[in-house]
Design a protein around this nucleic acid. Structure first.
Lengths: 104, 104
DNA sequence: GCTTTACTTGGCCATTCCGCCAAGTATCGT
DNA sequence: ACGATACTTGGCGGAATGGCCAAGTAAAGC
């Protein structure tokens, strides 16, 4: 990155990057309904438990989710209800891949 | 990706991924002020022209920007004004990296 | 105590991403 | 036609991602 990227933009990128993966976005979407333990989320995305755990770590470090251990389970929940608006906004950003995307 | 990811989520990921890079987000932010030619954007992000061009292709394919050739220049602009709301929403998603993100 | 359950962490491999350089294309000026 | 300008495209290395397996940790039950 040759030019200095403003801190505000850096923070935005960190958050956006955390959501830029199918499994992680799926998790974030699911957590809108309420907290879930890791095993539920593993069933949701269907990967190895270790993989799911790493995805959750990424979401946590981005400040998107919170964790809480209760008994043997670890429950994750959204730290910010704003995600709904965020996603609606994404949906309006581009209608299904327009022809105009072609360079020629 | 073991489990089938819903199409809606897939489309969302494609768009989010396109914005999940400092240079590309910087471009998107800059285009909020109005259209810019590629050389202006190269000055903004300070990379090789070919690199900038590839970033713009990615934004275009995600449907986030539009291009128009006029004379020797190619001008890019946002295809959707919604980006402002999108970014404000990102900003509220997580306050500056809280301590709670630590696993241990 | 030992075992089981529910994760997290470390390591490794395969794929993807991102940068530059070099070469190609298109338009303008002469 | 030729050269210059403004890109785009191809290729290639190096870095970052993402997946699994294996090993480690922590709480609950026996």
């Amino acid at each position: 990155m040759p030019l200095p990227v403003p801190p505000k933009t850096k923070r935005r990128v960190a958050i956006i990057k955390a959501l830029a993966h199918p499994s992680r976005l799926l998790v974030a979407e699911a957590l809108q309904q309420g907290e879930q333990c890791v095993c539920d989320l593993r069933d949701l995305i269907g990967s190895d438990l270790s993989t799911v755990s790493k995805h959750l770590t990424i979401l946590r470090q981005a400040g998107i989710v919170d964790m809480e251990k209760r008994g043997l389970n670890v429950f994750y929940r959204l730290r910010c209800p704003c995600l709904i608006g965020f996603l609606e906004c994404v949906d309006t950003l581009a209608p299904p891949a327009p022809k105009g995307a072609r360079a020629k």
